[in-house]
């Protein structure tokens, strides 16, 4: 099973350290025969998951590490995010209801909705003070 791991040094509240995220993912999945729609879904979900760490798990101004691993196997492409920040289980969080009017059109909370829409299998585990989020997608196709 080919695996690619990258570790990102983050500052809480500052997403700029994640600007190379998509390039890393493109390089990791290269040659894996993943359909374009699935690569797009992985981009969306990885952005949301990593942004959750930067914006919510890592206190503003403080440093933290985020390790992201990509695993490919027949029928499954998996991203595993590991970090030591505050516990946050996106599988248990309740997404906001769809906005009913402009006043309810909150800019936050949309990431959870998108993660669930674009990733069919999300698992969260908190162990030894660390968080592990496993995002499983279909493919590669062969």
């Amino acid at each position: 099973m080919p695996a690619t791991t990258s570790t990102w040094r983050l500052t809480g509240g500052d997403p700029s350290a994640l600007s190379g995220l998509y390039g890393w993912l493109d390089a990791a999945v290269e040659g894996q025969n993943l359909p374009a729609d699935q690569r797009h879904a992985m981009h969306v979900v990885l952005e949301e998951a990593a942004m959750n760490v930067v914006m919510h798990a890592c206190p503003p101004g403080e440093s933290g590490d985020l390790s992201i691993r990509f695993l490919a196997a027949p029928g499954a492409a998996t991203l595993i995010l590991d970090h030591g920040g505050a516990a946050f289980d996106p599988t248990a969080a309740v997404p906001p209801p769809p906005p009913a009017g402009p006043a309810e059109m909150a800019p936050g909370g949309l990431g959870l909705v998108l993660m669930r829409r674009f990733c069919p299998d999300i698992a969260y585990e908190r162990r030894d003070g660390r968080n592990r989020l496993t995002l499983r997608f279909p493919g590669p196709t062969g």
């Binding site: 997403p15 969306v44 952005e47 402009p102 059109m105 909150a106 800019p107 936050g108 949309l110 990431g111």
Partner: peptide, 15 residues
């Protein structure tokens, strides 16, 4: 490509 961070900017502008 558009995800939630970009949506946030559009929502703030529209609101």
């Amino acid at each position: 490509f558009l995800a939630s961070l970009g949506l946030r900017g559009i929502v703030v502008c529209a609101r």
